[in-house]
């Protein structure tokens, strides 16, 4: 690792590339991505379909191994030509929270149990996990629905429970994949406000993949991806003045 690390960055990627296949079937999903995300920032990952947004989210989520480059979380090297830690699930459990397009709550657990489960996986005792899970649900204003199964929750409620689960172990990095896709604009706005509050309250970095232009103005920064390349990394005021050509 020759490059200097940014001491303020919570997520730092340098020269990250990812390709699938070999020879004529090779697909370059990510090409030389260099980016940073700071604590308290809500960063949007946008771009047309096939631009590499989901692949980038998977790489940052330590689900997909990059082909090249290096990656740091909060100053700790995570990837440097190979995964530095073998136990990536533990890494995800401790450092990363995931919010999905469809809430992906476990259908056989109640709202509070869904949140508790992640805490218990990290080693929390059941009683302690229950107290913290209830607090988390109340913070997200779905405490009264704690004993409901996911099938009994509305889309907005389920998404809040999913956010509570993502926050369960107080991760510093939260990755959200189209979190507002199934919601109307009002509820989408509420969810984005929540994410903003979480980023501020917990000094966390939130990376949000989205196609939903209605929420673009809620991002601190937007990273535009096209054909696997990062074509624009800019703060909201700059972007609103000059959207990049060809961005979707």
């Amino acid at each position: 690792m020759s490059e200097m690390a940014d001491p303020q960055a919570l997520v730092e990627l340098r020269g990250i590339s990812k390709h699938f296949g070999k020879g004529p079937t090779r697909v370059d999903a990510l090409i030389d991505i260099t980016m940073t995300a700071l604590a308290g920032e809500v960063v949007g990952l946008v771009g047309p379909s096939g631009s590499g947004k989901s692949t980038l989210l998977n790489v940052v989520g330590c689900v997909t191994e990059p082909s090249l480059g290096w990656m740091r979380f909060n100053g700790d090297t995570v990837y440097d030509g190979r995964w530095v830690r073998r136990d990536l699930r533990r890494l995800r459990l401790e450092k990363i929270g995931f919010i999905f397009q469809t809430h992906n709550l476990l259908p056989f657990l109640t709202a509070v149990e869904n949140v508790m489960e992640v805490m218990e996986l990290a080693g929390a005792r059941q009683a302690e996990a229950r107290v913290r899970a209830v607090q988390m649900l109340e913070y997200l204003e779905v405490g009264q629905r704690r004993n409901a199964l996911p099938a009994q929750l509305s889309g907005g409620e389920a998404q809040r429970v999913a956010i509570a689960r993502a926050l369960a172990n107080r991760p510093k990095i939260i990755l959200a994949d189209e979190p507002t896709a199934p919601l109307d604009s009002v509820r989408a706005g509420i969810v984005m406000d929540l994410l903003r509050r979480i980023a501020t309250d917990q000094a966390a970095t939130i990376l949000v993949v989205s196609h939903d232009e209605k929420i673009f103005d809620r991002f601190d920064r937007i990273l535009y991806l096209r054909d696997g390349r990062l074509v624009r990394d800019g703060y909201q005021p700059q972007l609103s003045k000059s959207p990049p050509a060809g961005s979707g």
């Binding site: 989520g61 689900v63 699930r89 533990r90 890494l91 995800r92 459990l93 401790e94 995931f98 999905f100 992906n104 476990l106 259908p107 056989f108 489960e117 992640v118 996986l121 990290a122 689960r165």
Partner: peptide
């Protein structure tokens, strides 16, 4: 399958 994938993604070990 989706629940199991989710569990793995959020960090559940194989033994779970």
């Amino acid at each position: 399958l989706r629940s199991i994938a989710t569990l793995k993604l959020v960090g559940a070990p194989d033994r779970t």
